[in-house]
């Protein structure tokens, strides 16, 4: 749908593009004082889609992605918070399977996404995506599969928001972030490069997740899973702040890997 739109709109914007060089805006200030921005005028951080990070990783070498894939996706315990987190980790796994060009694994993940979405009442939102993921994997269209996984994550979140399950939507994002960070740190550990480690420098994103956990319902906020997520973010925060003009050290990468790995085990274990 969006591609169709872009195709139709292309003609109307063609002139604009052709003259882009003469459409320079009036000069913007080279420096602004962000602290003077009223809080109400600042929108919360935009959570990046996983493809943004994988896009950079593609340019930084060829890690052994197959070696990063998990044997088991974990268990659905029936606890909705756990299922939401698990769903996030499974979608993240899909991106790893795409990088590994493992079509069978991608197809399995497409089915798993549908099953877990059903468990939290948002199946309808991802039926088409799930099928598209499987189709793209069959066609070995890796970019297409990646886009569908991005879309699945957003569709799941959107459906949860519409059901006023914003808390669960945040947990899906967090689950994906935790698993994605576990894998990213694993890759950096195996072949440390400063540019790769710098991808972990996400201070506002961590603050954002932390605020969202604080805003959750009291029942959820007091749950073991959310308590452990809070603790994990607290452990990671000082380590990724090293990115402010300094490198994130191999030791910090190890520590981040350790805490995210523990969290993934907690999310995927049957007693979560």
């Amino acid at each position: 749908m969006r591609n169709t739109f872009f195709g139709i709109a292309a003609a109307s914007v063609a002139t604009l593009v052709a003259h882009a060089s003469i459409l320079r805006a009036e000069p913007a200030p080279q420096q602004i004082d962000l602290s003077k921005f009223p809080a109400a005028a600042v929108q919360d951080v935009v959570v990046p889609v996983p493809s943004e990070i994988f896009n950079v990783l593609d340019k930084l070498g060829h890690p052994n992605w197959k070696g990063e894939l998990r044997e088991s996706m974990g268990k659905n315990t029936g606890n909705r918070a756990q299922v939401a987190l698990l769903l996030g980790t499974v979608i993240a796994e899909g991106f790893i399977a795409v990088e590994a060009e493992d079509s069978e694994r991608i197809k399995q993940i497409g089915h798993d996404v549908l099953d877990l979405s059903r468990a939290v009442g948002v199946e309808k939102a991802v039926v088409a995506r799930s099928k598209a993921i499987v189709d793209k994997a069959d066609a070995r269209d890796w970019n297409g599969a990646r886009k569908e996984l991005d879309g699945a994550l957003q569709d799941v979140r959107g459906a949860m928001d519409e059901l006023n399950d914003e808390d669960l939507a945040q947990l899906v994002s967090l689950g994906g972030w935790v698993r994605g960070t576990e894998v990213l740190t694993s890759i950096v550990q195996k072949d440390y490069k400063r540019d790769r480690a710098e991808l972990l420098h996400q201070p506002e994103l961590l603050n954002y997740f932390d605020r969202r956990l604080d805003d959750m319902s009291p029942r959820l906020r007091k749950s073991d899973l959310v308590t452990q997520l809070k603790a994990m973010l607290g452990e990671i925060r000082p380590l990724i702040l090293e990115g402010e003009g300094r490198k994130i050290s191999p030791k910090s990468v190890d520590q981040i890997h350790s805490v995210t790995s523990k969290m993934v085990v907690t999310i995927t274990s049957s007693d979560a």
Binding site: A41, Q43, E52, N55, L60, D195
Partner: peptide, 14 residues
């Protein structure tokens, strides 16, 4: 004359 700031996490390399 009003402004809005949208906060984004961007990655070097993109």
């Amino acid at each position: 004359g009003e402004q809005k700031a949208v906060t984004a996490q961007l990655f070097k390399g993109n």
